[in-house]
Nucleic acid binder design. Structure first.
Lengths: 332, 332
DNA sequence: ACGTTTGCAGTAACCGCTTTCAGGGACCAT
DNA sequence: ATGGTCCCTGAAAGCGGTTACTGCAAACGT
């Protein structure tokens, strides 16, 4: 510790070869005779030489890392997303930068700043303004994550329309009326699409949407709050469609805590199919979304997919309703 | 998009000044006359010049970013920790790298690899071997996060002994016998210390520890599993001390789902004081730990505190028992 | 009026690695 | 024996900034 790192020149001097040879050996590229390779490797190993990433980056004109920008880490959704992204990048030998915006407007500067440290940026749908998005994309290859493509910027997202099927299931198969939607459509592109699908399903079933969405966040605690808002009122809903599983679980906890029967008195559905969804009692009806795959696909696109001819511009991953007991279906 | 980025030499040529002047203006260091500054700034602004981080890194011999290594992102603990770390670093203009080990043994190579991309590394206690830890520390300034200091490597951690006070509270104040501990002491330094404190409190109260710990993970789903293991047995515990809030919440869900009264038939406590702890019914008795501050302190230490004379070697943040209803205390 | 300080701008030498290009030796075919 | 290939190796030119040092002119002091 403290002894200055040695450079490629030092190694070359010690091994009595040229720096070019050392570089070729350490990178494993180009032609090197076995005895040369052996000699250099011995010295590299003995002195524990590791090439400087700074020098390498400058010479190759690439940082060797990508970034992911998202609003916060609360809940399993972002955890899975980030982990999927990270795992894929690391598997490709690429480093991962993160930037959390915390929903603050003044993070645009940070985003731009960060964009100059990486070879590619994945920006989650509800983090920065369209304008900032464009400026990032002008600096560095960019992908929109969980949002719509923008100009030349490709996107990776999940099919939110399945929440429409779920709504239809509640309205038609179960015959429920008086549904509530928990989630803020202005909060993120995903919730926007889910609210639209919820409304569309009502229209298709010729049922009026009974009330405005409960505009809260997407955390479990928001679900608990939503339970207070909906279930203590004079006219509680017969079924609650939550924008994600976290709020659905909070709603469930809130409902059970009030002594209500689920799904007997109020049915509850979510979106994501997080692990807890099948562990609670009653098990949660939801929509399965491949969150990890979403992150992984984004990383792949960023690392090797961009700029290729025929590169995908809008990857939409499939989702699937999962009917369990919280909607009123019998246990299979 | 696609037009090659311009360099400091380009800007110098256009503004008809030397590269040194451009650099001085863009960095804001050194003496530059007002008219020169003005002229350079105009060109920088007009052409949207942003200095390359690679060139800057090489010249200054610093990457301008730090890394945090942890086992996974499941649950609010790691989310808060990472966000605290990230926020502090970004506020100091430093980028943040992450590396998730996923508890895989073969991630040592990745860690070393990553260590050469940053100016400092924070390693969470239960991620890499002692040997790897040493090798990282030999390459780059390092801090242990939620673990004990190691050789010359400082640590930042929370005081886990408060779980002993909580155990004493259950044994003495409430007079419970037959306590169970949920958490794997070999899983992480934190859990080790909590299990030790749990045992020490038994010893102090002259009560035998009734059984081995339930060695499961720290996620909410593990708490649900632990509930199955403990509550369906012939001799269920009177109280369950969980290694963290997540497992305690899972345990609570499992207990309530079995129709058991909490805390009447089984008392439950946690550790962390996550937001959900005060939202569930009954509210969770736990130990408050400043998770975010843990991450922030680590980042501060890494960025500006290391190497200073009198630098802290072992920062222990204080914790505090929070008595709510899940242990049997009356609602205040 | 003359020497000395002071302020500002420019030249050029790095920072550490990659890679092109050129050179040299061994081997092959004629 | 000789010209041509093929394989390796090394010298050197970047990659894009930063900064020590140099030089010049203006301001200052006596």
């Amino acid at each position: 510790m403290g002894n200055k790192r040695l450079t490629v020149r030092e190694i070359a001097r010690i091994a009595e070869v040229s720096v070019a040879t050392v570089s070729r050996v350490s990178r494993g590229t180009g032609q090197v005779s076995p005895e040369m390779r052996e000699r250099v490797l011995r010295v590299i190993d003995e002195y524990g030489y590791r090439p400087s990433q700074m020098g390498r980056a400058l010479a190759q004109q690439k940082h060797g890392s990508v970034a992911i920008v998202f609003p916060g880490l609360a809940g399993p959704y972002f955890s899975e997303l980030v982990q999927g992204f990270e795992a894929e990048a690391v598997a490709a030998g690429i480093g991962v930068h993160i930037l959390v915006t915390h929903h603050r407007a003044d993070s645009d500067g940070n985003v731009l700043d960060m964009a100059s440290r990486v070879d590619g940026v994945a920006v989650h749908g509800d983090t920065v303004s369209t304008e900032t998005m464009r400026r990032i994309a002008a600096e560095v290859p960019t992908v929109v994550l969980a949002g719509r493509p923008l100009d030349g910027v490709p996107a990776v997202r999940a099919d939110n329309s399945a929440i429409g099927e779920l709504t239809r299931h509640l309205l038609v198969d179960h015959g429920y009326r008086g549904l509530a939607f928990v989630g803020n459509p202005d909060g993120s592109p995903d919730v926007t699409e889910r609210w639209e699908a919820f409304k569309a399903a009502h229209k298709a079933a010729r049922v009026a949407v009974p009330r405005s969405p409960i505009r809260l966040g997407l955390q479990q605690s928001d679900g608990v709050l939503a339970a207070g808002e909906l279930l203590d009122g004079r006219k509680p809903p017969r079924a609650v469609v939550c924008a994600n599983d976290e709020t659905a679980l909070g709603m469930l906890i809130g409902a059970l805590g009030r002594g209500l029967s689920v799904p007997g008195e109020v049915a509850i559905t979510g979106f994501d199919d997080v692990p807890m969804a099948s562990l609670v009692q009653p098990r949660l009806t939801t929509v399965r979304q491949p969150i990890r795959e979403l992150g992984a696909t984004t990383a792949r696109l960023l690392i090797s997919g961009l700029g290729n001819p025929g590169a995908v511009m809008d990857a939409v991953l499939t989702t699937e309703p999962v009917l369990r007991e919280s909607c009123g279906c019998p246990r299979t």
